[in-house]
Design a protein around this nucleic acid. Structure first.
Length: 290
RNA sequence: GGAACCGUAGCCAAGUGGCUAAGGCGUGGGUCUGCAACACCCUGAUCACCAGUUCAAAUCUGGUCGGUUCCU
């Protein structure tokens, strides 16, 4: 059995995962693209040691902020951890909001080994990229304005890879997808309040990186991190920055719903914030009766 | 009580007689095989209301309602 806990940022995935780990003798595998980084704790809402309650957590803090980590790496790491945990006779519990990582780990996504790191397409215009792509006969739809994806597609085509529209299949048996949700209003309220509370400690967390002039993919893309730079440079006020972070988090939550609703078959549960045990009970019942 | 100005989508806002009323933000929906907390796509209005002028009005005239500023 493998348990997968998904949902938008802020719903309460972490809390549920720890309860389920206790009940089912499980170990947690992080499925959040930002929590793999060491030092990014406050902004990623990483579970504290205390919250982890001695439950073993994997793929947390495995990279330095300046390192790069992608789905490709995650797929390998997560699959390895799943085997490792199963071998011990325990239950792997994947928890996180990065749908793409989860899908790549659990479904038959076959990434090819690539070694070319040439950036030969980086400086081309979108028009030029489309022109290059028009030489291939493709059966899939392409985002003709999405430069990043166009470049990626060209690079892959060069390796001889052929794009196809396919239905991805799970590569494991007995996988339970549990989605945590609540009303949009409630979720946005949680997100806004959570940010107000975390902003001061967050500044303490991020300021050293700014002072050391460390710039990295993680710091440049993580919500709660990228927005802080203008504040440190005195180009924006704290209020402006907080509002921006809240908005970006809300938008992110919406995109997560889009993914989970359309890319995976999720069993959704409404969170009971007054008595979380009810939610745990409901989920346990679902798992036991299936 | 009087005068001036204003009233275009959830918000900001262009248009001041003539093709299907710009744009921005937000909101909602969506795409997805290597940066995924990424990137990209889609998304809305008979212009406060009524009457009139005109071939034609968000644009002109009159009235009503609402708002802002000023005067006594």
């Amino acid at each position: 059995m493998i348990l997968v806990i998904v949902g938008p940022t802020g719903v309460g995935k972490t809390k549920l995962s720890i309860e389920l780990a206790k009940i089912y003798n499980g170990e947690i595998i992080n499925a959040d693209s930002m929590q793999v980084y060491k030092g990014l704790d406050v902004g990623t809402a990483k579970a504290t040691l205390e919250e982890r309650q001695n439950i073993k957590h994997h793929l947390l803090d495995i990279k330095e902020v300046w390192e790069n980590y992608t789905v490709f790496d995650y797929q390998k790491d997560a699959r390895e951890k799943i085997e490792e945990i199963k071998a011990k006779g325990k239950i792997p519990i994947l928890v996180g909001g990065t749908g793409y990582y989860i899908k790549a780990a659990l479904y038959d996504y076959d990434f090819l080994e690539e070694n070319n790191q040439s950036n030969k397409y980086a400086n081309l215009t979108i028009e030029k990229l489309n022109e290059l792509l028009s030489k291939y006969e493709l059966s899939i739809n392409i985002d003709k304005n999405n430069k990043k994806r166009l470049i990626r597609l060209l690079e892959k085509l060069e390796t001889g890879w052929e794009p196809e529209k396919k239905d991805y299949k799970l590569i494991y048996d007995d996988v339970y997808f549990i989605g945590l949700t609540t009303s949009r209003d409630k979720l946005y309220d949680i997100i806004d309040k959570r940010f107000e509370k975390m902003i001061i400690p967050l500044i303490d967390e991020v300021k050293p990186y700014f002072l050391k002039q460390i710039d990295s993919k993680a710091l440049k893309t993580g919500i709660g991190y990228k927005e802080l730079w203008p504040f440190f440079e005195n180009k924006k006020t704290l209020v402006e920055v907080v509002k921006e972070c809240q908005k970006n988090s809300r938008n992110y939550a919406k995109r997560q719903y889009t993914w989970f609703n359309n890319q995976m078959d999720i069993n959704w549960f409404n969170v009971d914030y007054v008595n979380f045990n009810n939610t745990v009970k409901e989920v346990v019942e679902f798992i036991d009766n299936k």
